[in-house]
Design a protein around this nucleic acid. Structure first.
Lengths: 289, 289
DNA sequence: CTATAGTATGAAGCATTCTCATAATTAGGG
DNA sequence: CCCTAATTATGAGAATGCTTCATACTATAG
């Protein structure tokens, strides 16, 4: 199908002029003339009566234009619509609420200033991003270096070390060394894997604490630690405020480094320019771009 | 507008397969893959979910296809229609009835055999072809070499010499030399120009005949001559039959060569392939191609 | 009858599109 | 669970077609 020529034809008919059609199409008048000559040669009939005072379609041209004009309008509308929805579609971001609260929220204002013009749609979950949902573009997940998936980038924000209420450092069951944890409550996420790994690092893999409590949400878990509920594993760089204010303390100088936040973006989501921008911004902010 | 890519997209969706779409489009699967990648990159969204067991459109792809598919169908139909009308539209030929009867008619059967598949529409007139009528493609006209228009080809069939009933060669007013015409009836077309030129050639420009009769149609005029009505100017090569049968004779060995049949075809009519074929055939038959 | 505003044309450069060769991916059968 | 067959993806280079440039041509209006 001589699509380009048909578009040129349609444009010429609308403008009744090669010159104006050329300028709409962003090409020279010569290009349009060539296109129309080719189309007429191809079809073997005259589509236009040319004159200096405007171009008028021949009977054949008129008939062809009825359908071609409609078709081109359809295409234009369809493209505009799809581009518009795409332009205004929010970038779907799954992000752990802790990272959202402690890292992202403080930086987001600056991001809006530098990249206005698109929306972000946040959802919070600890599970891996469900990218079968086409509206999810980016996920920030928590992985140890060797279990992180293919399409992820280590944001180098991470590490786990126990944190507790400052009161835990004194008194009867004061935390002097890791084995003292035996008489304390351990605050877990959904399982005890991380604590197990830290305890292994501390040389006491078998340690069994007084009690285990599970808080899916890290913000809540840390609040529980802050209130003296027990000892939670924390990422120090994310809770500088609480540490600075003395609300939480780190009893041991021993950090499990292997865990960190990872940016997960399937390659096919990067065709969304807004998603690409946001993803790049995060990497830049973390100094891993 | 990425028209080619949209066509590729539409074809892929219809076939649910890059490979089959490629074969419909007459290109390689690779080309289709490139087109779709470019389209998706351009729009910034995924249009297809690919798999080896068939390609299915994404939600966005589905929506785009609704309009694009319709538009492409419109274009296809419009092109088919216009091509079909063009293919079956008869070639309009204006041809002097004399030339049609004496030259064309005997050859037309052979032409049909060699070029079946299109119709010819003959109309007879001595006037120049009115090419403002888009249905007129070809005209065969009678010109002297120096008055023939730009877009005409001399078919080298022509020449004029007087012809008459054999009885005119004997008796009281027998035609022995051109000046004997003074006592005869001259049979003209619409004016006396041709006879004047012939008489000038014969050295008797002022000769005034006994009577002048006007017959627009050369076939009729020659019939009149044949019946002994008077003397008509004829093109010898076209009336070999009558001469051979002794129905007409040429009293003088003096031919006005400057007139001949010309094929007139405006350049823009040659975009009709059938018209081009017919025009070329005529030229070939006359040995002027 | 010239000026002006348009279209036509041919050659050459440029860009897009296509092909080729091959890689990567996925589903199904042994 | 691996292997095969069928599909899509990819990158580089080739081919095609589109565009431009420069200029010719044509018609209309003053």
């Amino acid at each position: 199908m001589p699509l380009k020529a048909l578009l040129a034809f349609e444009t010429v008919i609308r403008h009744r002029s090669f010159t104006r059609a050329a300028s709409e199409l962003g090409v020279t008048q010569s290009a349009v003339s060539h296109q129309l000559r080719n189309l007429e040669d191809d079809l073997g009939l005259k589509l236009l009566d040319r004159s200096t005072s405007g171009v008028v379609p021949s009977a054949d041209g008129e008939r062809l234009f009825r359908d071609v004009g409609e078709a081109m309008n359809l295409l234009r509308l369809a493209l505009d619509e799809v581009r518009e929805t795409q332009r205004t579609r929010p970038v779907g971001v799954q992000i752990r609420s802790h990272f959202a609260l402690k890292w992202l929220a403080p930086r987001l204002v600056e991001f809006w200033q530098r990249h206005p013009g698109f929306d972000l749609h946040f959802q919070h979950s600890n599970a891996p991003g469900d990218f079968s949902d086409p509206n999810l573009h980016i996920s920030i997940e928590w992985y140890s270096r060797d279990t992180s998936p293919e399409n992820s980038t280590d944001l180098r924000i991470g590490g786990l070390t126990p944190a507790c209420h400052p009161g835990f450092l004194k008194g009867e069951n004061a935390l002097f060394q890791p084995s003292d944890l035996i008489s304390h409550v351990l605050l877990h996420e959904s399982d005890d894997v991380c604590w197990r790994e830290w305890l292994t690092l501390a040389g006491i893999p078998k340690l069994c604490a007084a009690r285990n409590e599970f808080y899916e949400d890290t913000n809540v878990r840390q609040q529980a630690a802050l209130e003296g509920e027990g000892v939670a594993l924390v990422t120090p760089s994310l809770i500088k405020d609480e540490l600075g204010a003395g609300q939480l303390v780190l009893p041991f100088d021993l950090t499990l480094e292997s865990y960190s936040y990872h940016l997960v973006v399937p390659a096919d989501r990067l065709i969304n320019p807004a998603a690409r921008q946001f993803s790049n911004w995060i990497k830049r902010e973390c100094g891993v771009a």
